[in-house]
Design a protein around this nucleic acid. Structure first.
Length: 546
RNA sequence: AGGCUGAUGGUGUAACGGUAGCACAGAGGUUUUUGGUGCCUUUAGUUAAGGUUCGAAUCCUUAUCGGCCUACCA
């Protein structure tokens, strides 16, 4: 099997670096901040970082970028670990930026000693004012030329808690006229009297992202530090720090974040949906979070395939949700156990049947070793309301008076009449079955055009089915006028509380993925219990009938 | 406006100066005891204008359009 898949531009860079002997092996890292749950965009980053390492025989560290104690928490650390593992990746080491706080502090001292950093007394507002604009240079801070000794003393006092929050900062001395705003004497350290999830109250000064990330990469000897496009302007500072400190030269490469239409992919917005109860938590099956997708029944394989098909490039892009659906169906079609569930039932009476007849149906036609299961065909069954029409259009292959249909795995039936209530609603349907049409032994010669799924009224178990639609009404909520929440699809959750499932589904577990025949792929909800069995619809089947 | 960055069918992605290909979506057909799956066919593209070259999606120039950057967030 010749590997024909071409490299993406990151893999191309790595491949060349390896070829030129720049590195003997590569080391990447996935660097989430533990302040929220991972989403599809993170999945892309995970697949990229771990994927290139696997592809080129390297390793990947999981590193928590925990330099802002205000927002970070161990519950996020735990969920992130779980999600990465669930996707099927193994990290070489787990590190935390906070592991390096002492080392980072020493790096800061080195910068001060070299005259490359200074303590600044400006407030946030004053600093912003002096920053200049995109077209105008900024002004130097009046504190820019403090002596090395004074800076050293002040920095030591900052660490010792001698100053209030916001009173002093450590700044890099670079260039207030740089066309790159990031390089206009950026903040390196700020004072925060906050409890850190790992270092506790040991520190009251914390490094900024720009002073922590590159150095952390360098300390770990990361060869390729892969991040998203918005960090492009930070690369100049990333390189500046490494060069001034004269430490291991990790290099940063940027790719376009992954977006999917009809949803949002920013931690901030997802958090808003959760805190304002617009969805039912981070793992709501409508959320593009890893935990939401897991709960919905989307498999790690299909996420990986999707990310792979979506590709890695440098231009902003929005992928179609239908590509994800395709990947999910492709995976689930091979592994999902076939079962019959009637979501919206109507009763059918087989008038000429007075016994129970055992029938056998395959568990998965795509799996020759999948085996069969037995079901009882009984006098009273449920079918889907939408599978019957009193006045059918020409191409309606389902049930209508006089028409023959096959009941999956059982018999051919012919509808004889319908009962209605006072208001004219159909209450039940009468049929006659063809005794010589049993599935597998059909000698009736009748060839119905349609096959319906069904459950026995007597043996079916009640279940709740939750069906999900897109979370937003517009393709790209981010680029619409006004607030993204104005475009929420208020009908994104539809609950069938009256559904009936074949008995085998009593044994459903979180290890099983199901295809409910003619309806779609379904997955047991984690909140289901013995009293209430709940299934989430993962994705529907392709439907070529309108 | 300053800097950085990008532009290939509806969407996403290849082609590394030499036949614009693949996937999804769409359309049509075929198979089928799931209107599923499989299989077959098909529609549709190099932002624009110049230039270099035997030959340009690719190199050069200009234009146009998009994204990002002025948080004591990451």
């Amino acid at each position: 099997m010749s590997e024909a898949t071409s490299n993406n531009f990151i893999e191309e860079i790595i491949s060349n670096d390896l070829k030129e002997g720049k590195y003997k092996s590569i080391l990447t890292r996935f660097p989430p901040e533990p302040n929220g749950f991972l989403h599809m965009g993170h999945a892309a980053s995970i697949c990229l970082n771990f994927g290139v390492a696997e592809k080129f025989g390297g390793k990947t560290n999981l590193r928590f970028d925990d330099t802002n104690p205000i927002t970070e928490d161990t519950i996020f650390v735990d969920s992130i670990k779980e999600d990465v593992q669930w996707l099927g990746f193994k990290w070489e080491n787990i590190f935390y930026a906070s592991d390096y706080f002492e080392q980072l502090y020493q790096f800061a001292i080195q910068l001060i000693q070299q005259g490359d950093a200074y303590i600044c007394d400006l407030s946030a507002e004053e600093m912003a004012k002096q920053k200049g604009s995109l077209t105008e240079p900024g002004q130097n801070s009046p504190y820019r030329n403090r002596s090395v000794d004074e800076n050293l003393t002040l920095f030591e006092q900052m660490r010792a808690g001698k100053f209030k929050e916001g009173e002093k900062t450590l700044r890099a001395k670079i260039d207030m006229a740089s066309p790159n705003m990031i390089m206009r004497d950026p903040l390196l350290y700020r004072i925060k009297f906050a409890h850190h999830h790992r270092t506790g109250d040991k520190w009251c000064i914390y490094p900024m992202y720009d002073f922590a990330h590159g150095q952390s990469d360098s300390i770990e000897n990361i060869t390729h530090s892969i991040c998203t496009l918005e960090f492009v302007p930070h690369r100049e500072l990333y390189d500046w720090c490494i060069q001034k400190l004269n430490i291991y030269p990790s290099h940063q490469y940027e790719f376009a974040r992954l977006n999917v239409n009809y949803t949002v992919m920013s931690k901030r917005k997802l958090k808003q949906l959760v805190t304002e109860s617009l969805v039912n938590g981070w793992d709501d099956p409508r959320m593009p979070t890893i935990s939401g997708m897991r709960r919905r029944g989307i498999t790690p394989n299909s996420i990986k395939t999707f990310v792979q098909k979506a590709g890695i490039a440098k231009r902003e892009k929005v992928n179609e949700f239908s590509l994800l659906e395709f990947c999910v169906r492709e995976d689930l079609n091979k592994i999902a156990l076939r079962r019959m569930v009637v979501l919206d039932p109507i009763k059918v009476i087989i008038d000429n049947l007075d016994t129970e007849i055992e029938v056998e149906i395959e568990n998965n036609p795509e799996d020759e070793y999948g085996g069969n299961r037995k079901l009882l065909f009984t006098k009273e069954i449920y079918i889907e309301q939408e599978d019957f029409m009193e006045n059918p259009p020409k191409k309606f292959f389902r049930m209508s008076v006089g028409q023959h249909v096959r009941l999956k795995g059982a018999f051919i039936v012919q509808c004889t009449s319908i009962d209605k209530d006072m208001e004219g609603n159909i209450t039940q349907i009468h049929c006659a079955y063809l005794p010589n049409s049993k599935s597998g032994n059909d000698t009736s010669g009748v060839k119905p055009q349609g096959t319906l799924h069904w459950v026995s009224c007597q043996y079916a178990i009640p279940v709740e089915i939750r069906e999900y639609d897109r979370l937003f009404k517009v393709e790209n909520p981010d680029s619409e006028e006004g607030n993204f929440k104005d475009y929420i699809n208020e009908n994104s959750l539809k609950t069938y509380s009256n559904a009936f499932a074949e008995p085998a589904l009593k044994e459903a577990s979180l290890n099983d993925h199901f295809q409910f025949l003619r309806k779609g792929y379904f997955y047991l909800d984690k909140d289901a219990n013995d009293e209430k069995i709940i299934f989430n619809k993962t994705v529907g089947l392709k439907d070529s009938w309108k």
